[in-house]
Amino acid sequence: MNELNIKSKAKAITIADLRKMGLHGNATAHLFDGTKVTLRKRFCTTTKKGYVDGNLIDVEVMMLYSEVFPKIRTVKRNKVLIARKNREKDDELHYIKRQ
């Protein structure tokens, strides 16, 4: 009976995994507040409006992985969903299992 109650656990994502995805390129993460973050090798970037020489333009803002990691809802690479926050109580970011 215990065998029926056991759920298979998916592997949790770490900051090192996010850096690896950023190294390969074309990886994005969506945060809980709706912000889209581009993953880079050593940091994340997001675009915001800012003034440069008196002109309002889009600027890329650098964010550290340690700041972004707890806020991530989903991770995508090449428009394919790679990981998302578990909807259960543990609040970890898990890989999506493919059949």
Rank of each mutant, 00 (worst) to 15 (best):
G34T: 12
G34M: 13
G34W: 09
G34Y: 09
G34D: 06
T35N: 11
T35D: 14
K36W: 11
V37M: 14
V37Y: 07
T38D: 11
L39R: 04
L39H: 04
R40Y: 09
R40A: 10
K41I: 06
K41W: 04
K41G: 03
R42L: 14
R42E: 14
R42F: 15
F43M: 11
F43L: 08
F43N: 12
F43P: 00
C44Q: 10
C44L: 09
C44K: 05
C44M: 12
T46Q: 08
T46D: 05
T46S: 07
T47N: 05
T47A: 10
T47R: 07
T47F: 08
K48W: 02
K48L: 10
K48T: 10
K48C: 10
K48S: 13
G50T: 06
G50V: 03
G50C: 01
G50W: 00
Y51L: 12
Y51G: 04
Y51I: 13
V52P: 04
V52S: 06
V52K: 06
D53H: 04
D53G: 04
G54R: 02
G54T: 08
G54C: 10
N55H: 12
N55K: 14
N55Y: 02
N55M: 04
L56E: 11
L56C: 11
L56A: 01
L56H: 00
L56Q: 14
I57T: 13
I57P: 08
I57L: 13
I57Q: 14
D58R: 05
D58N: 13
D58P: 04
D58V: 02
D58S: 11
D58T: 01
D58C: 01
V59F: 03
V59N: 03
V59L: 03
V59W: 00
V59K: 07
V59R: 01
V59D: 00
E60R: 06
E60V: 05
E60Y: 07
V61G: 01
V61A: 08
V61Q: 07
V61C: 08
V61F: 09
M62C: 02
M63T: 00
M63P: 05
M63Q: 12
M63C: 12
M63E: 13
L64A: 10
L64S: 11
L64K: 07
L64C: 06
L64G: 03
Y65H: 00
Y65F: 15
Y65K: 01
Y65T: 03
Y65Q: 05
E67K: 10
E67S: 13
V68W: 05
V68Y: 02
V68A: 02
V68T: 05
F69V: 05
F69S: 00
F69H: 13
F69R: 08
P70D: 12
P70Q: 08
P70L: 02
K71S: 04
K71P: 09
K71L: 15
K71V: 15
I72N: 01
I72H: 03
I72F: 00
I72W: 00
I72T: 00
R73F: 15
R73N: 15
T74K: 08
T74V: 04
T74Q: 07
T74F: 01
T74D: 03
T74N: 01
V75G: 04
V75R: 07
V75D: 09
V75Q: 04
V75P: 07
K76C: 09
K76D: 15
R77W: 03
R77I: 02
N78R: 05
K79W: 06
K79C: 01
K79D: 06
K79V: 08
K79A: 05
V80S: 11
V80W: 02
V80G: 01
V80I: 07
L81G: 09
L81D: 11
L81I: 13
